[in-house]
Design a protein around this nucleic acid. Structure first.
Lengths: 351, 351
DNA sequence: TTGTATGCGTTATCAG
DNA sequence: CTGATAACGCATACAA
């Protein structure tokens, strides 16, 4: 009993708990049962008499016992830790997902182990091996670069949850977001505002989602009967610098454009600065819309119109799916749809 | 032996490594030595004959042996994992520090265990307990809320590295940043530009660093012979919303001001939007400077002047210090000084 | 239902 | 210098 101990030792009351060296064995002794019984109760492995369960629960409470995840891991049991492979630990977009994962895992007693792969498939493999050597109970991969087949193979021996792709397989769950539709919505928005010359700042062609957004853009153009001009599509790399550079490239073409759709908010922000540098005002001279709806986009000048991409929710869902996977259930989740968030960076084209 | 098994099963070769079940014992057998010897070589615990070392190294290489951190942890050895307590896993500022920590720890074979305490001392305590139960080799606390005494007590049983405070103690290393000087530099910059009515958007009074920045602001005013007007100091919470609200509050006072120093970039960005909403241009009508120099500040419209706060470096240094601490050395690092980064949001006051 | 014995992969403590 | 042997804390076949 913590209070009793404090009394005995006469130690100065403090919120610093001395490291709990309370073992399962001690609990067993206190409760007058065998260690296995305690283990059974802890894991629900088998049915035990209500009486003993009582005693054990009490012992656990008074002793303040907390299982040692390390020992559990070694014994072949679970480590209660989930590996999470993100691309950059400081990404403004994935950051929200990480928070979602953390929020979902924590109450369940699981700890996330975050690692960054920097868009590098080899590093992803290295990290997966590392995570397995640490005996994580499962791995969540946020938009990885690993090919689907490799992922499927991995999933045979360890639960996997992946975002950003459509996949199915045993021990594998995928959460895909409709990037095509997002691209469609963004472009439609601009078109409905009267714009007919819409430039597109593309994401890295290596990213499937970037390509899907481009296709959405093209589809919207087509359904509106507008011509698709490849010269108005500027390549980018999903970061601010790309947006800035894209404006230069765009202006250099001499083509007319009254609106820009950037494949993500970071590039949109860069584009806004590029426009500003050339004395072009947003939205008076050029309408601008991004994609992802980063928290910061609400505070850009002017606030950026965007396509909401529920990163936090996706994180929670991925973690939730993982929790179900590790407990043998089959995840059953629907990912939310992209939705347009019209703010001040886009406006109707003056007649 | 993995290769033999593969042969038997005739399994398709793939780049997905089947989980390395290569144990230290197998290495020992292959090398014709005892497990203890292998362990010694691995940890440099004792001197072994060059000959045996050769054999063991070879066995390790050919077998592709990789130590099991979990077993190491249980055996009382190190887990090669470092707990990192940040305040929000998706903070734009701390994100850079996390990356620094990751970059420094990874090559050393250590893994960070990131957890968020959300500026809550109780949660910090909970996380520390959790991390200890996971047998981390040390804990890095990024600007925690825990009181110094508690931290010192914890550090007696486990290496701690803390940022954002000045502390000393056994097994404890603190990396403090000179926020006062930063505040001084920012304000001086504005004064040198001819501004005499400088508002200050303060950070949360609960944060010591926020108070230090305020003091720097006051000191700069004083050394320039300018009067300190408390009405020009608006409270804030370090987030964008605060900046936005601060502008309203500032304007409501009716006081004159030609420049604003926000205690961090996030509030500066919010302030920029607030100014924009009132038709006030930055920097033509109001000069603005932030603090922290977030990566995104380079791309705000206009690019934000700020005080560079080397978050990434601090992360690396914290991790480096931890690495030294766990290996019994005494860290010897100097934290870099704040430096002014003048961009386009601040300009000379027209005569 | 419950207890006993064994093993998980390493490190650490002993003897030699 | 090196090799047995005992923990580390828990889960789990195997017995009872």
């Amino acid at each position: 009993m913590a209070s009793k101990k404090n009394l005995q030792v006469g130690m100065k009351s403090s919120n610093v708990s001395s490291h709990t060296a309370v073992t399962l064995e001690m609990v067993a002794q206190r409760a007058g049962v065998s260690p296995s019984t305690v283990s059974r109760i802890l894991n629900g492995t088998a049915v035990v008499s209500a009486l003993k369960k009582q005693a054990v629960d009490e012992a656990i409470a008074t002793l303040g016992y907390v299982p040692n995840p390390v020992a559990r891991g070694l014994a072949g049991g679970r480590t209660f830790s989930i590996g999470v492979i993100t691309q950059a630990i400081d990404s403004p977009f994935y950051g929200a997902s990480l928070r979602g994962i953390e929020d979902e895992l924590d109450p369940a007693g699981y700890s996330p182990l975050f690692v960054s792969a920097h868009w590098n498939a080899d590093m992803e493999v290295r990290h997966i091996d590392m995570l397995r050597s640490r005996r994580v109970d499962g791995i969540i991969v946020l938009t990885g670069r690993l090919d689907d087949q490799a992922l499927k193979t991995y999933a045979k021996s360890l639960p996997f949850v992946v975002t950003g792709r459509a996949l199915k397989g045993p021990g594998l769950f995928a959460l895909n977001f409709d990037n095509f539709k997002g691209g469609l919505l963004a472009t439609r928005h601009l078109i409905e505002l009267g714009h007919q010359h819409i430039a597109f700042i593309a994401g890295d062609p290596e990213h499937p989602d970037a390509m899907e957004r481009l296709q959405g853009y093209q589809a919207a153009l087509k359904e509106a009967g507008l011509v698709f001009d490849p010269a108005l599509v500027i390549p980018g790399q999903y970061h601010e610098e790309s947006g800035l550079l894209a404006i230069e490239a765009l202006l250099a073409t001499g083509k007319r454009f009254t609106a820009i759709f950037a494949a993500n908010d970071q590039m949109a922000v860069g584009a806004a600065l590029g426009l500003h540098r050339h004395g072009l005002r947003v939205p008076q001279d050029v309408s601008l819309i991004g994609f992802d709806d980063l928290p910061a986009s609400l505070y850009s000048v002017p606030p950026l119109s965007s396509i909401h991409h529920p990163a936090y929710e996706i994180g929670r869902q991925a973690a939730s799916a993982m929790l179900q996977l590790v407990s043998g259930k089959k995840p059953n989740l629907v990912v939310s749809e992209p939705v347009l968030v019209a703010r001040e960076s886009s406006r109707r084209l003056p007649a």
